[in-house]
Deep mutational scan, measured.
Amino acid sequence: MEVRTIKVFTTVDNINLHTQVVDMSMTYGQQFGPTYLDGADVTKIKPHNSHEGKTFYVLPNDDTLRVEAFEYYHTTDPSFLGRYMSALNHTKKWKYPQVNGLTSIKWADNNCYLATALLTLQQIELKFNPPALQDAYYRARAGEAANFCALILAYCNKTVGELGDVRETMSYLFQHANLDSCKRVLNVVCKTCGQQQTTLKGVEAVMYMGTLSYEQFKKGVQIPCTCGKQATKYLVQQESPFVMMSAPPAQYELKHGTFTCASEYTGNYQCGHYKHITSKETLYCIDGALLTKSSEYKGPITDVFYKENSYTTTIK
């Protein structure tokens, strides 16, 4: 009895394709271990004539594949690729409408935090270190965002349907971005203890939790000093293409032309909904596939993004 075979390709990165001759009487799992086709788990399936010449994702289970996976995804987590594939199996079914010149995501599976993050990423200057993220990001900007969303979920250790947080998501993504040249110098002034300067680099240099107003941050924000008295913390120097200011959701007025974009969060910790506000020729609110415009805006804002380049204080 002759062994019926077909020729397929296996890959971990969709760049390096490895030619395989597979036995049609055995499952993919018996031949390769966990195997995925377009995100779908085909591990328990036997090869079919229609699979001839198709590319299958496999887990990096030998040295060659491990090197290829690390170079593309910059992670050695053995569960990463499987999590990416199972997320992709959902995100490829989502709709990605162009809204006001940006790629958004039609609401499904509690994905409003991903839509808000995706919209924000198209408006701030950011370059990702893992080629996987950078490639998928370019495709997302062009309207094909399924891979990018699935990668975000995998890097953030999230599953489809789980509630997510924009600030946490951005923080994970910033860790995989090139923020080497970003720098922030802060000064804390206390009447009792004097003053202390701190220099922050990388992710810490672009994120701040405690106030939404970048102007206020430049002037000074009140913080408790270690001595128990009130101290003032203010920005001395900022070198970065953008800054992200966050605070627990509270009524906040966004003035046209003073910011790049913002995240609105309605609801409580267990259950809520994100919308995205962007400042173009007027203010726009993007909620999944829905767009509304207004000249002014007041609502429960939790993150505001500002364009920056270089700032030095005039406070002496």
Rank of each mutant, 00 (worst) to 15 (best):
Q175I: 00
Q270P: 14
V221I: 14
L179I: 05
T91N: 00
D23G: 10
Q175D: 13
Q237S: 14
Y28E: 06
N178V: 07
E264W: 04
L151S: 05
T76A: 14
L290K: 15
W94R: 00
M170Q: 01
K46V: 11
L119I: 00
T75R: 07
V188Y: 07
T199N: 03
K275F: 00
G101R: 05
C182E: 03
Q20P: 02
D180I: 05
A150F: 00
E308I: 14
T64W: 08
L163W: 14
V99S: 01
Q197L: 14
A108K: 09
R83G: 01
G210Y: 03
M245R: 04
E71S: 00
E296F: 12
Y269T: 12
I6S: 09
L59I: 15
G143W: 00
A146K: 06
G164R: 01
T35S: 07
T282V: 13
K7Q: 15
D109Y: 03
E264N: 06
K280E: 11
G82T: 14
A87Q: 06
F305T: 06
Y284H: 09
Y28M: 04
M85R: 10
L186V: 13
Q175V: 00
E281S: 06
T260S: 08
P131D: 00
V22D: 00
G82W: 10
A247G: 08
Q196C: 13
T258H: 15
T75C: 09
I286M: 01
M245C: 08
K219M: 08
K293S: 12
R139L: 12
F128R: 01
L291K: 07
L121D: 02
Q197G: 08
T226Y: 07
Q216R: 11
E71Y: 08
K293R: 10
E2N: 10
I45H: 00
Y214V: 07
T35Y: 01
T55G: 04
G202I: 00
S310W: 10
C193T: 03
S246C: 06
A247T: 09
I105E: 03
M209P: 07
Y269G: 15
H256N: 09
K158P: 02
K293A: 11
E215T: 09
N14S: 12
T5P: 12
L212R: 07
F259S: 05
G53C: 10
K7L: 10
A289T: 09
G143I: 00
T302N: 04
L102V: 00
T192D: 14
S294R: 09
C190L: 02
Y265L: 14
D135E: 12
Q230M: 13
N178H: 11
K54N: 11
N111P: 05
I315D: 13
N178E: 06
P97Y: 10
N187Y: 10
V58A: 07
V58T: 10
I315M: 15
L200V: 12
E168Y: 01
L65Y: 09
F70H: 10
L81G: 03
T5L: 12
S104E: 02
Q134N: 13
L119G: 04
E296M: 15
Y36Q: 05
A69Q: 15
V22C: 11
L163P: 13
A145N: 03
C261N: 06
P248D: 10
Y208C: 11
E68T: 08
P97H: 11
E144Q: 08
P300E: 15
Q251W: 12
S25K: 15
A154E: 00
H18D: 07
P241G: 13
E308F: 14
K280T: 07
S294A: 15
V188P: 03
G53H: 15
N49R: 14
Q31E: 05
A177N: 00
V243E: 07
I315R: 11
G82M: 15
A40Q: 11
A108Y: 06
G220Q: 05
E2G: 07
L235F: 06
A132N: 00
V236W: 07
Q175A: 15
P97K: 05
N309G: 13
Y269L: 13
E204Q: 10
T76S: 14
K44G: 15
W107D: 15
S246D: 08
M209K: 14
T312G: 10
V188K: 15
Q216A: 10
C112I: 01
E204H: 14
K191Y: 15
Y297A: 03
N110S: 01
I15G: 01
L81V: 13
F70M: 13
N61S: 11
G53Q: 10
T10S: 10
P130L: 01
C190E: 00
S104M: 03
H276V: 01
A247I: 11
T313G: 11
L133M: 05
I277C: 06
L254Y: 12
F80R: 00
V203W: 14
K183G: 08
T10V: 12
T258Y: 07
L17M: 14
Q123Y: 02
I223H: 12
K218M: 07
G33L: 00
C149I: 12
V42G: 00
T313R: 08
L153P: 03
Y297F: 06
T103A: 01
T43M: 10
K44L: 10
K275P: 07
E168V: 02
K219S: 13
V160K: 01
N268E: 15
I223C: 12
P224I: 10
T211N: 12
D62A: 08
C193I: 05
N100M: 12
D23W: 06
F9P: 00
C156E: 01
K298Q: 15
Q196T: 09
E281H: 03
Y208T: 04
H273L: 05
H276P: 02
L114C: 00
C285M: 10
Y269E: 15
T64L: 13
K275R: 15
K280F: 11
T64Y: 07
E264S: 15
G82Q: 13
Q134P: 00
A136M: 08
M207L: 03
G228A: 05
Q216D: 15
N147I: 06
S79D: 14
G202F: 01
T278Q: 13
E68V: 08
T64S: 11
N111H: 03
D62P: 07
A231Y: 02
I315Y: 11
N61K: 12
A150D: 00
T198W: 11
L88A: 05
V189W: 11
V203R: 11
L118S: 00
N187T: 09
V166L: 11
V22G: 05
L235E: 05
L163E: 13
E71C: 11
A205W: 01
Q237R: 12
F70R: 14
R167E: 02
I15Y: 02
H256V: 12
I152H: 01
P47S: 01
C149Q: 00
Q230I: 15
Y28I: 04
